[in-house]
């Protein structure tokens, strides 16, 4: 089974994340960059499926030069090869442009059966890429899964919602997105880390993929950020000493905040 995993390098959620003053895009220099945690789980799921069914795992990432760190992490974990789409023209791309480029990149992987993505990235949090990709590629989508299995040419999954658990299935090839409940990702083994640098990574530009540079990037985006300001610092809060009526005082406060 040939599996494609979409990964993204994001600013570490522990570091201070901000937008640049110049064009309100992500300030990649201000924060430590890591492989998005949800993508570690997507890679893990792909590796589990490969271990069960055989085949090959290809990692695809779109991002600037240093996204190679995130790609290397996925290869260290055990993915076989990678495609890195890197082009200055992509700076500031919205979800539609990103999906168009990723769809072309997926097209370079011959005979793929399954595409696995995280349900949303921790930076942009649009959560729309898997669905848009399915639309562009004309493939079924089985999204927001907490469990994935493949039987023959069918992928089955469980989607947990507040209303209950939906059991979904689709015929391969298909697009799957997974949530943080899917698995616990493995640590890369030292042998894996040492093998990673020998694994093939194909670097492609938008021109290589036959995408018009005018359709992508900040200029081609359908929406833009006009202004951004940091969240005001948290204020000290209000202290209530419980003298038998603490509960009602908390309720009063919540009513005052229009929370209940």
């Amino acid at each position: 089974m040939n599996i494609v995993v979409l990964v993204k390098q994001v600013p570490d959620t522990w570091s201070e994340r901000k937008l640049t003053d110049a064009d309100h895009t992500l300030d990649r220099e201000s924060a430590d960059a890591v492989l998005d945690e949800i993508n570690e789980r997507a890679v893990e799921e792909a590796l589990l499926l490969k271990e069960a069914h055989g085949g090959e795992v290809t990692v695809i990432a779109m991002g600037p030069g240093r996204a190679t760190d995130a790609i290397r992490k996925a290869l260290s974990m055990g993915a076989d090869k990678a495609v890195h789409v890197s082009d200055d023209a992509l700076h500031g791309s919205d979800v539609i442009a990103t999906a168009k480029v990723l769809a072309k990149a997926i097209g370079t992987v011959e005979g793929f059966d399954l595409v696995i993505a995280g349900n949303e990235a921790t930076d942009g949090r649009a959560g729309a890429i898997p669905a848009i990709l399915a639309e562009i590629l004309g493939l079924p989508q089985v999204t927001q899964l907490r469990k994935v299995t493949v039987e023959g040419t069918t992928v089955k999954g469980e989607r947990e919602t507040e209303e209950g658990v939906a059991h979904l299935e689709a015929s391969l090839p298909a697009i799957v997105s997974v949530t943080e409940k899917i698995n616990e990702p493995r640590y890369p083994s030292f042998k894996g880390i040492m093998a990673a640098k020998k694994k093939p990574v194909t670097t492609l530009t938008v021109a290589d993929l036959g995408v018009d540079a005018g359709e992508v990037g900040l200029g081609g985006a359908w929406s833009g950020v006009i202004e951004a300001s940091p969240k005001p610092p948290r204020s000290a809060g209000q202290r209530i000493d419980d003298e038998g009526v603490g509960g009602s005082k908390i309720a009063e406060y919540l009513v005052g905040q229009k929370l209940i």
Partner: peptide, 14 residues
């Protein structure tokens, strides 16, 4: 080097 850093980060994360 990259590889040594990756191994260090893996041990620290674990």
């Amino acid at each position: 080097g990259e590889e040594d850093r990756d191994i260090q980060a893996t041990v620290a994360g674990f």
